[in-house]
């Protein structure tokens, strides 16, 4: 059973600049600390509070949309759910195989062939070589790239690369899927086929969390939504209600 539970989760980012990252400054700082303490405290690493007291429970079948303007903490929340950022405080428990799909072509190598990239992408998704080989034919068929798969993908058009990335990324069904702005799929002819596959794929995933700026996308995929601002959840509820609230907030 897949489930996600967050309890009072907070995340803050240290913002380092060249000065705070250098050892020289740290040493000088500690050496001169006595005289210019006032200065050193203000020189302290500035901290951005990216998430504050997030409490959230998701279970089997939940489709959650994250809504909010840039910098509201949507991506950070996704990364916390994916286990990439460990929160500074609070409790988090995520059960089930989680796949963060922020960039479907993460890890693809321009100089490697299409087949090599299928393997590479599959490894990134947590598959073993053997598992990928078992799916290879199905993936290759779906891309309709034929003999191109033997060529390095730098010879592909952007749309062809997208097809490849899309085909591999939707070949593993995780328990929990984390999406940032949905999944793109290239040209129009392919679009129809891709949409079918995507629908079949997302149907099988037990929990999906999607962060998006597109109202339509959120409405079509998610039953529930949360509205975030300054790293906090300001409103949670059914998608339409939350979108309505967001529209009010933006002032139209």
């Amino acid at each position: 059973m897949a489930s996600i539970q967050l309890e009072n989760v907070s995340v803050s980012f240290p913002v380092y600049n060249a000065a705070t990252r250098s050892i020289k400054n740290r040493i000088i700082q500690s050496a001169t600390g006595g005289q210019i303490r006032a200065d050193t405290t203000s020189q302290r690493i500035s901290v951005v509070q990216a998430l504050q007291d997030i409490t959230l429970t998701l279970g089997e079948g939940d489709r959650l949309g994250l809504i909010g303007h840039n910098g509201a903490g949507k991506t950070t929340l996704l990364r916390v759910l994916g286990g990439i950022y460990e929160p500074n405080s609070g409790r988090i428990s995520v059960k089930g195989l989680t796949v963060p799909l922020f960039d479907i072509s993460l890890g693809m190598d321009q100089e490697s062939t299409g087949y090599e990239n299928i393997i590479l992408r599959g490894l990134f998704l947590g598959l073993t070589r053997r598992e990928i080989k078992a799916r290879m034919e199905e993936i290759a068929d779906f891309t309709e790239l034929g003999d191109f798969l033997d060529l390095p993908i730098r010879t592909y058009s952007a749309g062809m690369q997208m097809r490849l990335a899309f085909a591999v990324s939707t070949s593993v069904v995780p328990d929990i899927l984390l999406l940032d702005e949905g999944i793109g799929a290239g040209d129009a002819a392919f679009m129809h086929k891709a949409r079918e596959r995507l629908a079949r794929f997302t149907e099988k995933v037990s929990i999906i969390v999607l962060s998006s700026h597109s109202d339509d996308l959120v409405r079509s995929m998610c039953s529930k939504a949360i509205l975030m601002e300054h790293g906090q959840i300001v409103h949670a509820g059914p998608t339409d209600e939350v979108l309505e609230r967001y529209r009010e907030m933006r002032g139209f």
Binding site: G83, P100, F102
Partner: peptide, 9 residues
């Protein structure tokens, strides 16, 4: 860095 921020490995 890019991978660390995107991959839950």
């Amino acid at each position: 860095d890019g991978m660390i921020r995107q991959l839950n490995a």
